[in-house]
Write a protein that binds this DNA or RNA. Structure first.
Lengths: 346, 346
DNA sequence: TTTCAACACGAAAACGTTTGCGCTAATGTT
DNA sequence: AACATTAGCGCAAACGTTTTCGTGTTGAAA
């Protein structure tokens, strides 16, 4: 087992100084052709690679990006990671991930672990608990210490930083408008509580779309699911809630669901009540997941382009990191949504 | 914007030496109660945190684990990551991920990037291309340099290291036996080419199960899908292949598919051919994905316990890293599969 | 022969830590 | 009063780099 070889060892072996070795390897013209060759040959033979940690310490940058997301077993977030990794790697960066698991404490701890020199900047999506508590001190402190942050998807106005968001409002409007133009007259929405910004915006989009088409919103058509239901374990409860939505609106002919799971549950309930999709009721979901694609019938959905979000976030962060002048002009990039029409709508 | 404070700055501010500050913060009894208090108060005020990079360099360990997987937008792999992250964090480690994207070159590059000091050890699943080419020099070199590797899921005997695998053979046997005991007499298998070790093992399990029940395997019942088809973009081709399997076996009454997508495609084709599930044909998949759970009818499947695999892999790696004696006794842990019975079987 | 530039290399500092050891001054022991 | 002990602190090395500056040697020009 031969340990990694260092400059010092090469120097000793060749009976020159460390600096000479370093310079030879970097093709400095201070070094004679002769020794340069010798050193490079030796280095190649022993497969010398500069130690990243030492470089990080010296350069005071790690060429590593920290990602904090609420959950990784999630199609959207993993697509974002893929996007980040793609451009990060292309530009010579690594990515290190931390999971907040939707918990405020884990978010804080993870950020503290990484902020102490391990990374150059953050890309993150805020946990639900943090959004609820509205405690953002860990973000401001990080930024104050000169470590840039790019937020995506779940962002918050209070923090001044780069952001990449989906046009949730517009996406929801697209979806609902599509339902309307396909003949729906009683469109229900299955959404989350309002503190989840994306849920709120999508609900707002739903309302605006109705308004634009001179349709009156009805409270009975709006289902705000209590939160724990998103966790996969309470599918039966979710189903109950959706079922009551159907039952109190006998003439329901369209559903806009703010995520995949809600949409699928709506499909299941519709089937249970012997409603045909899309003939009797049309359904549109939100997110570009694998469930929508393979559902039967396949689900019309608003795609968020998760990978593109990740790519853009990484670009913003790296550009910021590599910018010479320290001008802190923050940008908010909006990634357009796209309505992918499949079989669940006419 | 106040930069991160260092020992040196505290020392200068308090007019003591760096060592005194360091010792005071670590509660060394070399330091008087007086100065200790003073230093700690100051450090707290300025929110001092030791620089991870400097510590890594000094201690020659980074407390970071490198993960290399072929793909992250994949339920199984993201569950594994979650498992790794869980125990890694609990034991004070971070995880840094690299995606090989099923490419040999990217696997090598990613490993080289991380192996130069950035991490203490690897947890990885081998890319398809690497398995095809059977070029494992980057693994042996890494191990030779004293950096431990734990492989999971897609492993290879040629490399001597810790491994965590699913009992693919036994899992497949369980599935096929279930089909047989539920009355199936003509069971088809949809699998991959043999160089993917897991595909090979699952096929073998299928054959062994048949044999145990004195049933003769028939070549026409075995469909080895050409490789590109796994990529989501060639669903139609995949469908065609599966369709021809159905057509050349009119009496088909059971399907064992080695992954979720194949199983779902089988369901789709069955429906197209007006076969009822599970009355006319029963289907079992492999993997603990979200598709199986939410399919209609929901899919009986062999769960691999991805998260548990990740947890175990992380434990093995960290135990190895923190072991005093340098005994290299490698372990191969087998994670039992579990047959989750749902609606697609009787 | 003297002078000077070019050449080839080494010493040392710096990045931020931790820690063994040595030094000083004060205290305690005969 | 002489000596030993100890408390309290600083020096310096080490981790592996890069880079600035200094220095000795060589060869050529004067």
């Amino acid at each position: 087992m031969k340990r990694k070889v260092t400059l010092k060892q090469i120097a000793k072996e060749l009976d020159v100084s460390i600096s000479t070795v370093s310079k030879a390897l970097r093709n400095s013209k201070e070094i004679s052709e002769d020794t340069r060759q010798k050193v490079q040959a030796f280095a190649k033979l022993y497969n010398y690679r500069p130690n990243n940690i030492a470089l990080s310490l010296k350069n005071r940058k790690t060429k590593t990006i920290g990602i904090i997301i609420p959950e990784i077993v999630h199609h959207f977030f993993s697509k974002v990671i893929r996007g980040i990794e793609l451009v990060a790697n292309k530009r010579g960066y690594n990515v290190i991930v931390g999971l907040s698991n939707e918990s405020f404490d884990k978010e804080v701890i993870n950020m503290e672990m990484l902020a102490n020199g391990s990374i150059d900047g953050f890309i993150l999506s805020i946990s639900k608990e943090t959004l609820q508590q509205q405690d953002y001190h860990h973000f401001t402190e990080t930024i104050n210490q000169g470590m840039p942050i790019v937020m995506f998807d779940r962002v918050v106005d209070a923090i001044n930083c780069d952001k990449v968001i989906v046009d949730d409002l517009e996406g929801a409007k697209k979806a609902v408008s599509k339902l309307i133009s396909s003949g729906c007259e009683n469109i229900g929405i299955i959404t989350t509580r309002d503190y989840v910004s994306v849920g709120k915006l999508r609900t707002q989009g739903y309302l605006e779309a109705l308004e634009e088409h001179k349709m009156n919103p009805k409270a009975s058509l709006i289902l705000k699911v209590v939160d724990q239901l998103l966790s996969e374990d309470h599918l039966d409860l979710l189903e109950k809630e959706v079922e009551s939505l159907f039952k109190r609106n006998k003439n329901l002919d369209g559903i806009f669901a703010v995520n995949e799971l809600y949409a699928l549950t709506a499909m299941k309930v519709a089937r249970k009540m012997h409603l045909r999709i899309p003939e009797d009721i049309q359904i549109i979901g939100f997110t570009d997941g694998v469930l929508s694609k393979h559902a039967v019938p396949s689900l019309t959905t608003v795609s968020q382009h998760g990978q593109k979000i990740g790519e853009k976030a990484a670009e913003l962060l790296i550009n910021n990191l590599e910018r010479e002048d320290e001008e802190d002009i923050y940008e908010t990039v909006i990634i357009e949504t796209e309505l992918i029409e499949r079989e669940s709508t006419k």
